[in-house]
Amino acid sequence: MTIEHRDDTGARFGMWLFLYTEVILFSGLFILYAISLSKFPEQFSAASHKLNIYFGTVNTLVLLTSSLTFALAVSAIQMGRKKQCLRFCWATIGLAVVFLINKYFEWSAEIAHGIYPGSETLAEMGPGITSFFNLYYLTTGLHGLHVLIGATLIAVVAVLTVKDRVTSDRYTLLENSALYWHLVDLVWIFVFPLYYLIL
């Protein structure tokens, strides 16, 4: 007697609602950032100069490109081009990995300089710079976690596509992971100028 119930729009709407919660989650950190910035403008700019702008810019480009490849993956599956869709999926995962590797080098360089939450070096630099780096680590850390989750999700969806569980007329899962992936990108779009580019 069970009636198959399928509601793609509902599924997408649910995903959007979930993305709202993600935005609010990050906004907590952005509120703290805004307040600290208004309290310590000079220290923030000094601290920002310690970050490597090249890492930041390259990672931005990587993430934007990965967003493109995954958006293309959705179009591909809609047009029934499974092979292409899969290629786009792998490309996206590859870019995510590049992003994380970059992040790893960036963080290790900073940690090697003794800059990490709770460190002595940081404490000597005074409260403004400390608060910048605390925020930086927490925000990019949380974001990095989301990249990791997103990449895993994409891998799962890609496997399901291989198995034909995601097809050209049943692809909500792919679409929803794309929404998630774009959110990760969105957050980075704000993180990048706010942390790397303060003059």
């Binding site: 729009t9 480009l61 934007l64 047009m79 007329d169």
Partner: peptide
Amino acid sequence: SEQTHKAVPYRTFILIWVALLTLT
């Protein structure tokens, strides 16, 4: 028709991507 959208052509996405890079 309300449940699924038409596929967006690749060209649109690529143009948007170029715009995003420029803005960056």
